[in-house]
Every structure is written in structure tokens, then in C-alpha cells.
Computed example of a mutant assay.
Amino acid sequence: MSRTVAESEPLMEQETRLSESQPAAAGTVRPGGRTAKVRRAVLEATEDALAATGFHALNMDHVAASAGVGKTTVYRRWGSPVGLVADLLRDMADRSLPASDTGSLAGDLRANAGLVLKTLTDPRMGAVFRAVIAAAACDEECAEALNGFYRARLEEWAPVIKRGAARGEIPPDTDGLELLRAVSAPLYYRFMITREPLGPEHAEQAVRAALTAAGGGVFTRP
């Protein structure tokens, strides 16, 4: 008979006893084998809980039960709900889709804005992002993890700005990260601050405004 994750936990604990004998910063260990399966189950359960009830109702015991993992493992490995959210953000950064290469800067930025729009308007992922942004607003560890998530995404997309500059579509000394921020910022503002409807027309408007500003040298480095 096959063993469940919970039933395999004693063996998993033996395999990872040295690395987990002291609480580690969430997400600093990249385990394999049974430990990786446990991490995946716990992070999926965390994402489910955030989507359903938000950050402030996130409960370690409930996450452990939903994941089929012993709660002692969850408390030792992640320490707190904040640790769960921080590790989830790092995992989401690792699993994010690569940047597009459409052949034009406008096309690439539209792809970027479309990806942001799809994520924020998805019933499940929109709820997850709203929860982790709320968590980051009240906890420094979550804030650092959220910053790391977006920094990784900006760095992934930075080459599209360099390619656009090489084609002469924008000034060569354009700050790519600032241009990318200008594309997504209006979408996040409507999503998180004003809670206004968010649709394709807003993504297109953000791209056109960012391209116009970049062409005028607004994002050139001093």
C-alpha cells in the first residue's frame, strides 16, 4: 500500500533533520524528494487558504491538515503564517512565466500588461495577490518577500527594454525597470487601491502612456 505524505513524514524528517534542526528563513532551502513534495503540498494549501479567506485568517494547523502534513513539520519549517506567505511568494517567483519576445517593444509591453491583467482579474489568483499585498503592508518579512517577487519579475522582463532600445524604439539610456513599473503600476492601483473595474482597455492605456513617456525621455537615466 502506498504511503501518504503524512505517513512518510518520519522518514522525511530523518532526511532533512540536519537542515531543519533550527528554523530557517522560509524559502532558503530548496529541498528534493519527499521534502519537496511536502513543501509543494503545504504551499498549495497556503495558496488555497489565502484565496478563500485572506491572510488574517491563515491558520497553520488548517494548512497542515489540508496538505496532509504533520503540523510539527509545518511549524518547524515555516514558523508562522508570515513564513508561509514569504515562501509562497518565493515559489511563485520561481514558477513565473518567462518574458515575451514579440519583435517589438510595444508588443512585449502589451504582453507584460496582459499577463498582469490576467493574474489580477483571475478570481483565484487575484484573491491570492490581494492577500499577500495585505500581508506585506503589516509585516516586514512579507514585504521583503513581495519585493523579491516583483524584483525577479522586473529583471526577467528587463531584456525586452534593452531590445527595444537597440531597435531605436526608445532612447538608449532608458531605465528599463522604471518603464516596466510604469506599465503595471496603474493596473495595481485600480486593483488594490481604488478597487475599480479592470479590463483590457486599462492595460492598453497603461502601455501607450508608458511608451509615450519613454519616447519622450521620461525614463532616461541621469
Results as ranks from 00 to 15, higher is better:
Y75H: 13
S100E: 15
K162S: 12
R30M: 11
A143W: 00
N147K: 03
N59C: 15
D94K: 12
L179Q: 01
A206V: 01
L109H: 02
R181W: 12
W78I: 02
A65N: 10
R124M: 11
E144L: 14
L109Y: 07
D101S: 15
L109S: 03
V63H: 09
P186T: 05
E196T: 08
G83E: 13
Y188M: 09
H202R: 05
V42M: 06
H56M: 07
V183I: 04
P186N: 07
N59T: 12
E144P: 00
T174R: 05
P81R: 04
L115K: 05
L89E: 06
G114K: 02
P197V: 06
V69T: 14
M12D: 10
T194P: 02
T35P: 00
D122F: 08
E201Y: 05
L198M: 01
A65K: 12
S2V: 00
L11D: 10
G27Y: 09
L146M: 14
T28Y: 10
K37W: 08
G176T: 05
M92C: 02
G54S: 09
T174S: 10
V74L: 13
A113Y: 03
Y150R: 08
S19P: 00
A99N: 09
A152K: 09
V63G: 09
R195D: 12
V69C: 13
G215E: 14
A45W: 11
S184Q: 12
M1V: 05
R151E: 15
S21V: 02
R167G: 02
P10R: 08
R40C: 02
V160M: 04
F149C: 08
T121R: 13
Q14R: 15
L115Y: 14
N112F: 15
C142Q: 04
A93D: 13
R95M: 10
W78E: 06
M1F: 12
R34Q: 05
G70F: 11
S96K: 02
A213T: 00
A137I: 02
G216V: 02
F219A: 02
V160K: 00
E13H: 07
S21L: 14
A111V: 03
Q14L: 15
V74P: 09
E13I: 03
R34A: 11
A67F: 14
I170R: 01
H62I: 07
M12E: 09
I170L: 10
A203D: 04
E7T: 00
G216M: 06
D122Q: 07
G83S: 13
S66M: 03
T35F: 07
T35M: 14
A45Y: 10
C138D: 11
D91M: 08
P197R: 10
R130M: 07
G107R: 06
A65Q: 15
E7R: 06
A25S: 05
A51E: 06
D87T: 05
I193Q: 10
R95T: 14
L97I: 01
D173Y: 08
E13N: 04
E7N: 06
L50N: 02
T16S: 08
H62N: 14
E140D: 15
G176Q: 03
L97N: 04
L109N: 08
T46N: 07
L120T: 02
L50Q: 09
S8P: 00
Q22H: 06
R3N: 04
G216C: 10
E15I: 04
Y150N: 11
G164P: 02
P81N: 10
L84E: 12
V207P: 03
